[in-house]
Design a protein around this nucleic acid. Structure first.
Lengths: 257, 257
DNA sequence: ACCCCTAATAATGTATCCAATCATGTGAAT
DNA sequence: ATTCACATGATTGGATACATTATTAGGGGT
């Protein structure tokens, strides 16, 4: 079986349209725009220092990603996300990642991948050892979390799952890079899910791994959505969200993985 | 609850880039290109009667859809689909459509939608009444099938499911418009699935509807993939696939080039 | 004969220009 | 006063021209 060296690779921005796309994407996730805002092509092109042609392809890509809306002859607008969008995205993500677990378990993961999962669990253990998640350890924890999920998805051997999960990440806050860090109980339980999932995968117990992952993602989504509805600003304060990971490049659009 | 008048609407080709995209998409699904073929921009633009600018946006869209591959400075190529791609797409489709059933059942479908499903089942009954699927009834049967699935997906109230299922349809032959019509036993059973699914949805039995739909789609995919592996040409002959209307002539096996 | 380097060629990426469409604002008629 | 019509300005869509990158053909050297 083939080893998954880098779970979800993303190519560098070789063309200027790519660069524009990533720039705009980061701008949006950074909250630089308000929902409903129009994206002036002339203005944006001048800001990014490119012509309108590559800009337009970049906008088209973002629209396909679902990050912005497009209407012919009316241009592009920042999409307005509702809490229901977040719930729905998490529902699908939970199902797909659960499916990934079952497929990976049934296929039998390589010892390399299994070791990797165990190492990631150990990483989490080390971080959470003191019964808390120190704020300065958040990046490390987040990276561990991302890699855990991506490893399983890659091991599932079904390109569509990775593709769709990736797309669902384009909804703000719906990402395994987002971590609500103010409730240690939740985090501890979440990490325990990881441990059990890794164990189920090692045992090739597909159904158990699937159920665990489904609940794992579903609960995270429910928690986030409930909090958003209760108090959006407080939730955003406690959600650790970096638009540009320290080491990881941003998954670009249009790449066959 | 709101009525779903047109389950999954697809906007008309208002811009010429849209027209180019649909044209090329149909060309590809029609088998007009061979896997790995390069898509010359100048040539295609002239063929379609448009400039390279809208053509390029169309190609970018198709690449995002996964129908063609793209490499910077090297252009677009027809993607090479393997039987495994078809299997994988069906796996995900089965899971997502099963999820759609569960969600629709739990939310409770409107009486309008339920009536519609019943009407569609009755349509199928009428077509299959004589214990066979007459070749001239294929278009009607196919339309019924498409509408059945789309109605449920729309009723699930989760835009991501529809979106992803739609994308998975971009794999050649992975579409509810494709029907293997030479085995009446399979068709009869498939239609019986529809009946039971409609019943489960009416009973708000989410799990049952989910399981039925999952198996319904999974089996279709397995049958198709197994046949393709056994004898591709024979399978294609028995797979009824129309890209748009019922006015197709022949998909010219010996394509010009 | 083979390989590598170089130059010509072709195809893609980008910029600019023109056309078509939509939004806005003014004015007259009811 | 309100509404409809029309004209004007702004913005997007499409076509063309230019720049840059890959591919390929050819020649010289080993």
């Amino acid at each position: 079986m083939t080893e998954t060296d880098s779970p979800l690779p993303s190519p560098p921005d070789v063309t200027s349209a790519d660069a524009a796309a990533t720039s705009i994407r980061e701008m949006i996730l950074e909250g630089h725009f308000m929902p409903g805002d129009r994206l002036h092509q002339d203005h944006l092109a001048e800001t990014l220092g490119v012509s309108r042609t590559p800009l337009r392809t970049a906008l088209a890509r973002l629209a396909q990603d679902g990050l912005i809306d497009y209407e012919p002859n009316r241009g592009y607008r920042i999409r307005r996300f509702l809490v229901s969008d977040i719930r729905e995205a998490f529902t699908v993500r939970a199902n797909l990642e659960g499916l990934a677990c079952r497929l990976a378990a049934e296929a039998g993961m390589s010892t390399g991948d299994l070791d990797r999962l165990q190492a990631l669990v150990a990483e989490g253990d080390a971080i959470l050892f003191k019964g808390a998640l120190p704020i300065d350890q958040l990046p490390a924890y987040r990276r561990m979390n991302v890699e855990f999920h991506e490893t399983i998805i890659a091991a599932a051997g079904n390109r569509w799952i990775g593709r769709f999960v990736h797309q669902s990440h384009n909804v703000p806050l719906v990402s395994d890079r987002v971590i609500l860090w103010d409730d240690f109980g939740v985090i501890h339980r979440s990490h325990d899910d990881h441990r059990r999932i890794a164990g189920a995968l090692a045992d090739r117990d597909g159904v158990r791994a699937q159920n665990l992952m489904n609940e794992h993602v579903t609960y995270a989504g429910q928690l986030l959505a409930d909090r958003l509805e209760a108090d959006p600003s407080a939730t955003l304060r406690h959600a650790f969200h970096d638009k540009k990971a320290d080491d990881r490049t941003r998954p670009s659009t249009g790449d066959p993985r």
